[in-house]
Every structure is written in C-alpha cells, then in structure tokens.
C-alpha cells in the first residue's frame, strides 16, 4: 500500500525519461556516423572511438568515485563526440588526453553534468587544436588513408562523395547521410529541437550561397550546398549545438542560437584564418547562451514591461 500512495510536493507528473535513457538514445543516434567513420578510416578510426570513450568514462568514474564506468552515459557520449571530431589518424595519447580534458576541464570544473558552460567535447577539441596543431590538421583520404587536403581547404570533390562521406575530414563529420539518419532519430524522439539545426544549416546555406560565391544561380546554390555538406556543419548542427546543457531553453532562443552559430561558422570559414569554424562558432555561442535565455524569457501573463 505504501508504495502505491506517494505523498510528495510537486512535480507530480513523472516521465520514464532519465539522463541515462536520453544518453543511450544519443549513443544510438551517433552509431551511424561512428560506423561510417570506421568504414572510411579503418582501424585508426575504430581505435580512436574506443579510446576516446574509455578515457572519458574512466575519468568520469574517477572524479565521481563510482565503480560503474558507464554511469549515466553522459561521459560515453562526450567521449564518442570527441572521437568523432578528431582527425582519423591521431596518436593514441592525444585521444586519451582529449577524453580526460573534456571531462575535467570541460565538465567537472563547472560542477558536473548540467552545469558546464561549454560543450565538453568541443572544449577538448579546441584545447587539443591549440596544443598539437600538427596532428589536429593532419587529414587523410578515406580507405587508402593517403594524406590529403579537406574539401574546405580546396580539394575538389563531388556532391555524392560529400553526401556519403568519402572525403578527408574528421572521423565522424564526413558522412552527411549517416549524421542526418542519427539526427532524424533524435528529432523523432524529441530530444532535440528542429530550431537549432534548422537555424544553423539554413544560415550556412544562405550565407554560402550569397557571399563570395560566383557565377550564375546554379553555381551560387551549389556553393551553398557545398558549405552545408562539407566540414563539421552537419555534426555540429545536429549533435554539438543541440547539447541540452549548453544551448538556450526557449524556442525563440534556440532559433537565435542556431542562426548565431551559422553566422559565426561562415564568417570564420569565408573571412577568417582557419578553413573550418564550427568548433569556435559553437563555443562562442555557448558563451552567450545565458544572455539569449534572459533575452527571450517568456513574459508572465499580464506582466508589464517597464
């Protein structure tokens, strides 16, 4: 009888959703992209993914002093996301340091899950890029793993290759198809809001079409499509920018956030020093998330603005 009648204060509506169940859904959603990475980049890709996840999970278990290294699954997601934004061929110690840095400096110095300001995986990537830039821009072609430039740095490729992912790039960012599959699953489950990826990808497409593109309408449109498919926009828009902790909570705020990420990405790509700007664009927008939330806070019914 006691178990059936629970007297408690609000909230009274309970959901079966937990951090763990959401994180498992995200892991499932990332599986196609990870699989594509392993298919295209072979053992190097596989080892990077395993090491990244293990390093993040072990670091989390040590910090939380828990024996169960999977825990709530958030560290596994962080480790996997980190592995997916690393170049396919990196030294093992770089992946291990990256996983540990993501969990400590990216997450636990702010107070653990739910309290971090910046996306942990991208924080780690930024720190690794600043520290070991030589390894972090070492791109290889899929399958034969020969050193090559990325499409964003000028290597020519077809739209089919861009879509399927048979291009040089980070482990999990190359295959737009696999990412859309996973992102679609998350949208269907309601874990992410269309406004962030919609605003992000839409802005990248519009700016890619209008700025610095040349020729007739078809040429301009294909420049826009190129910018959407190349580099980390798909991965960033669907999995990084939509991180629940570091993105705004209000619907309007989410749209502003997505558009801001798109604008920053394209400004860095077209007018900046680096060929790719997704990491820094999302980190910058993470920093202004509290401001966006404050700005777009819904008003109480009947409230008068002063």
């Amino acid at each position: 009888m006691e178990t059936k009648l629970v007297v408690s204060s609000s909230p009274h509506i309970r959901a079966s959703q937990s951090i763990r169940s959401v994180m498992i859904d995200v892991l499932v959603a990332l599986f196609p992209a990870a699989l594509a990475g392993v298919i295209f980049f072979r053992w190097g890709g596989f080892l990077t993914i395993i090491l990244g996840m293990l390093s993040a999970m072990v670091t989390e278990a040590i910090i939380l002093r828990k024996k169960n290294i999977f825990g709530d699954g958030s560290a596994a997601v962080t480790g996997l996301l980190l592995a997916l934004v690393l170049p396919p061929i990196v030294p093992w110690w770089l992946v291990v340091i990256g996983g540990a840095v993501a969990i400590t400096i990216g997450k636990h110095v702010f107070g653990g899950i739910g309290n971090n300001i910046f996306n942990p995986a991208l924080t780690a990537r930024a720190i690794l890029t600043l520290s070991w830039v030589g390894y972090m821009v070492h791109w290889v072609r899929p399958i034969d793993l020969a050193t090559s430039a990325t499409p964003l740095a000028g290597a020519s490729t077809s739209f089919y290759n861009l879509f399927v992912g048979a291009i040089p790039g980070s482990l999990g960012e190359t295959s737009a198809f696999a990412l859309i599959l996973g992102g679609g699953w998350l949208l269907y489950k309601g874990h992410i809001d269309w406004r962030i990826p919609g605003g992000y990808i839409g802005t990248v497409f519009v700016m890619g079409t209008l700025l610095k593109s040349s020729g007739n309408l078809a040429g301009m449109l294909s420049a826009g499509i190129f910018h959407v498919l190349a580099g980390g926009v798909m991965l960033g828009a669907l999995f990084m920018a939509t991180d629940m902790v570091t993105s705004p909570v209000t619907p309007r705020g989410k749209l502003i956030f997505g558009i801001g990420c798109g604008v920053m990405t394209m400004l860095i790509r077209l007018y900046g020093v680096f060929p790719e700007g997704v990491t820094f664009a999302i980190l910058l927008m993470n920093a202004v998330t509290p401001l966006i939330d404050k700005l777009t806070m819904p008003r109480k019914y009947g409230e008068v603005t002063s």
Partner: peptide, 18 residues
C-alpha cells in the same frame, strides 16, 4: 610533445584555476 596551450594565455587561466 609539449602541451602547447599552457604556453598561451588560455593555458594561464586554466593552470591558475586548477
């Protein structure tokens, strides 16, 4: 292989904070 970020300003903040 030096952990270069600690030579840069961001590394100063991270090291000081830790």
């Amino acid at each position: 292989q030096p952990f270069r970020i600690f030579s840069f300003p961001p590394g100063a903040f991270i090291a000081l904070g830790l």
